[in-house]
């Protein structure tokens, strides 16, 4: 790949991102006027337009962008490292671990804040960390490698196990808790503020940078672990760093907005059609396009049944289901 086409391609994805970020705040169930929002003659507390724009829509759009970016990049990484293009950020049990954490916090009525963050989010983050550690410690061989077949199996098993625990807690919970559990499991970007953005963005950006740093090594692993090793890639270390970093950014955004499915599957596939499978360009392109995609889906979620807002997870799943079928039925090159 040469640097000129690299910059050109990424500029295009950046443009899509900027346009999405510029247009979507203006769309919503209540019409707002930019002139009034930015007007000096109305005091900030009385300026309804400014409040909607800056306190409601902007943080939500930023959270959507961060979440879309993290899930899409994580999806691309899981697909490459597992050498399986149907893998997703949730394949290895991260989301169900997060769900279990969140559901425990909800069932215990822990409606408090710790370090400025809701305890439900912290529990959910701890849950995803626990799932990662469990799956990887089960799978690791004595040579320090992670055989992909066993890894997938362990992930699926963890998903079922945690889902069973979630169902159990859900079953014994009371009605109001039950509603909150269901609502959390649907995933959504609606309840957010700038504090959440500030607390999750460093992890997401640092994670994406680490993944970019090892992107060429992961390219080689995506063509085969042994040939990667023979080209000087420390396979065990790169697998570990890659899986854990991708799981960590997934767990971080899931803690903030619940499991939003299919983004990590749809976006990497779509982007790969345009830029190819080289992670050096696939990662930044997925980051930009994933951000745009989820913000667009969320705008749909905010407006399609206006004034009722539906969880964005429903929208992504409605797009993702048919997409997944198309993916399976698509004619693959021999």
């Amino acid at each position: 790949m040469n640097s000129r086409s690299y910059v050109m391609t990424l500029s295009l994805f950046f443009l899509i991102f900027i346009v999405t970020l510029g247009v979507t705040p203006l769309i919503g169930s209540s019409k707002i006027s930019l002139a009034r929002a930015f007007s000096d003659s109305i005091s900030t507390s009385n300026n309804v337009d400014a409040n909607i724009l800056f306190q409601v829509r902007f943080p939500r759009i930023l959270l959507g962008a961060l979440t879309g970016a993290a899930l899409s990049v994580a999806g691309a990484i899981f697909q490459a490292l597992l050498r399986n293009d149907l893998a997703a950020p949730f394949t290895l049990g991260v989301s169900s671990g997060a769900a279990l954490g969140a559901v425990i916090a909800i069932a215990l009525n822990l409606n408090i804040y710790l370090l400025g963050l809701p305890v439900v989010s912290l529990f959910s983050f701890l849950g995803s960390l626990g799932a990662i550690m469990l799956v990887f410690s089960l799978v690791r061989t004595r040579h320090g490698e992670f055989p992909t077949g066993v890894l997938l199996l362990a992930g699926v098993t963890a998903n079922f196990f945690f889902a069973a625990m979630v169902m159990f807690i859900h079953y014994i919970a009371d009605f109001s808790q039950s509603f909150r559990i269901i609502r959390w499991l649907m995933g959504g970007l609606d309840i957010t503020d700038y504090k959440t953005i500030v607390s999750i963005s460093p992890i997401v950006f640092l994670g994406i940078f680490i993944l970019l740093f090892i992107s060429r090594d992961m390219n080689l692993i995506s063509t085969g672990v042994h040939s990667a090793s023979s080209r000087g890639v420390n396979v065990a270390r790169i697998q570990k760093v890659g899986f854990i970093t991708a799981s960590l950014i997934t767990g971080t955004v899931v803690a903030a907005c619940g499991p939003i499915g299919f983004v990590g599957l749809i976006v990497p596939h779509t982007v790969r059609l345009f830029v190819g499978p080289d992670l050096r360009i696939l990662i930044p392109a997925c980051m930009l396009f994933g951000a745009s995609f989820l913000v667009a889906c969320d705008t749909l979620a905010r407006t399609v049944l206006a004034p009722t807002e539906i969880p964005v997870g429903i929208i992504t799943a409605m797009i993702g289901g048919p997409f997944f079928v198309w993916l399976l039925k698509r004619k693959r090159p021999a």
Binding site: M1, A80, G232, D278
Partner: peptide, 15 residues
Amino acid sequence: VFPFKVSEIVLMGRH
């Protein structure tokens, strides 16, 4: 699994 081009595979030898 992934649609790498022949030239990309060969360039991987430069890793």
